[in-house]
Each structure stands twice: as C-alpha cells, then as structure tokens.
C-alpha cells in the first residue's frame, strides 16, 4: 500500500476513531469550484478523499451521482482535468490520500500505462473502478499494484465466503464494503448486519474495512463507525452541492461552505462513534 494511505489509517486508528472517507465528483459543477471543494474537505475533517471521475453511463450510480457526472461533463471535465485537480490539491496537502473513483472506459481509452503514470504524477494513491471485478484484474489492478498504486475493491452483501478470498486477493489500501445491493444514494440499511459483515471481512484480511452506501448524516456515521474502520459518504455530499447551485447548475457562494458544514458534522459523527460504542 502506498505510504500515504497506510500512514493515514494508522494515524486515525491511533486516535481511536474510524476514518472519514468523502466522495465528490471532479468537475462538479465546474473545475474551480470542485478544486475549492477538494481543498475544503480535509479542513472540515475528511481523512481520505475519493475523487469521482465522470462517465456518461454510470451503471452503478443513483440519480444524484448521475446528475453530478452530467454537470461535470457539461462543464468540460475530462480525465486530464481530473488529474489536474488532484495535482493542485497535492501541491498544498501532501498527507491526505486521494482515491480516484469511476468506471473503466475513460481509463481504457486514456491508455492504462499513461493513466497510471499520470495518476502517480498527480499524487493519486488509489483507484476504485466499479466495473472491474477480480476476474478482470489483468486490465488495471495488476498494472496498478506494480506501480504501487492501491486498488481498492468493493465487497458487497452478495460477496459470500466462497468468493471473499478472491475479492480480497489483490485488494490494497482498504476494503470498501458496500452495505447493500444497489446503486449509490439508496437508503441506509439496518446497521446490525453491517457490523456482522465487517467482522466477517476482517476475519479474512488485515486491511481496514470502510463502509459506504446510505451514510448521509452524522448519526449514520456514528452508528456505522462503531464497527467499521472507516465510513464513506458520497451521495450526501453530492446532494449538498446540487442543492446549492443556481437553476442553471452554476456554483453559488453557498456551495463550498455548504459542503464544509456537512463534512464537519460527519466528522463529529465519526469522532463520537467509538465513544458511543463503548457506552
């Protein structure tokens, strides 16, 4: 795993709390605003940043992230510009891990080797590529690991014990447990089976397990964070951005502060997680 990712998880574990992983869509609604959002995230308490790469056909995403991708593409976002956002962020913050999250086709068309070189150059630490299961590891996962870029895999409720070892085999950085079958932005499911699932995954791996899908409020973050090593919040942030835009989809003065306020609340949630669990 890259030093930055390992260090961040170790530091946060030492604080006795789960990691807060925040997702937003690069280029939503425009390049400058999304760079400002990214810079604001660690200051508001985010520990790891998932930087979304827009794709025209996001098959695993709900309406909120679909619309965010459309706004970004309309605003002229490209993979090269997403790297530029990461690069400018990295110039100011050398410690917060960046994970690029998206679909394979834009990477495939960019060219895998060129993509990995540019990702390293931009200070990217990991990749989540939704439509590359372990069966497709030769495409990107293995080349990424050779260059010391983490390949973060999703495990889901359908990933049974028979399949789990295969899913974990080439996973690095952390394991992203998708807490329900479904698309991003669905309702939060019952937390009890999530704790069981986290324990099951942890019995197979030493990697940290972060849980996402459905986490929207500080309270959700607190409940999920009681059992997980990290909590991933995406749709709630994307919705917050969307609600601050003008009718034409342009950023307003409320856009960046709105995200800051939401993330500050979520950060308080993860900081209360273990205290609550110990009670």
């Amino acid at each position: 795993m890259t030093a930055r990712m390992e260090q961040r998880f170790a530091d946060v574990a030492a604080e006795g709390r789960p990691v807060l992983v925040t997702y937003f869509m690069g280029g939503d609604p425009d390049f400058d605003t999304s760079l400002a959002i990214m810079k604001a995230l660690p200051k508001a308490g985010a520990d790891v940043i998932e930087l979304g790469v827009p794709f025209s056909d996001p098959m695993a995403d709900g309406p909120a992230i679909q619309l965010a991708g459309q706004r970004a593409l309309r605003g002229g976002q490209t993979l090269a510009k997403t790297f530029e956002i990461a690069r400018r962020f990295r110039a100011e913050d050398q410690r917060t891990p960046i994970v690029l999250m998206g679909y394979y086709n834009p990477i495939y068309i960019y060219g895998v080797e060129r993509f990995l070189d540019d990702a390293l150059d931009a200070g990217v630490d990991g990749l989540i590529v939704v439509d590359l299961p372990p069966e497709m590891d030769d495409e990107l996962c293995i080349p990424a690991l050779k260059k010391d870029i983490n390949f973060v895999r999703l495990a889901t409720p359908t990933t049974d014990d028979r399949r789990l070892p295969k899913v974990l085999e080439n996973t690095s950085g952390f394991v992203y447990y998708v807490s329900m079958n479904g698309i991003t932005g669905s309702a939060l499911p019952d937390p009890a089976p999530i704790a069981g699932a986290v324990a099951r995954i942890k019995s197979h791996t030493k990697l940290p397990v972060c849980v996402g899908f459905g986490v929207k409020t500080a309270d959700h973050a607190r409940v999920i964070g009681a059992s997980a090593d990290g909590v991933v919040v995406g749709t709630a942030i994307v919705n917050q951005i969307a609600s601050s835009l003008t009718e034409e989809g342009r950023a307003t003065e409320a856009t960046v502060p709105g995200v800051e306020a939401l993330v500050r609340g979520l950060s308080a949630g993860v900081r209360a997680a273990r205290a609550a669990a110990a009670e």
Binding site: L132, P133, P134, E135, A155, T156, T158
Partner: peptide, 20 residues
C-alpha cells in the same frame, strides 16, 4: 472460459453482480 472473443467480451460488471 473468461468469456472473451479475442480482446472482446469479458465480464466488466460491479462486484454485486459477479456471483450471480
């Protein structure tokens, strides 16, 4: 056996669908 016709085909799906 991996579902490929030359370089084409394959199984590019979300993990949720793989077991199915």
């Amino acid at each position: 056996e991996d579902g490929r016709f030359g370089i084409f085909g394959g199984r590019f799906v979300a993990e949720t669908l793989m077991p199915l």
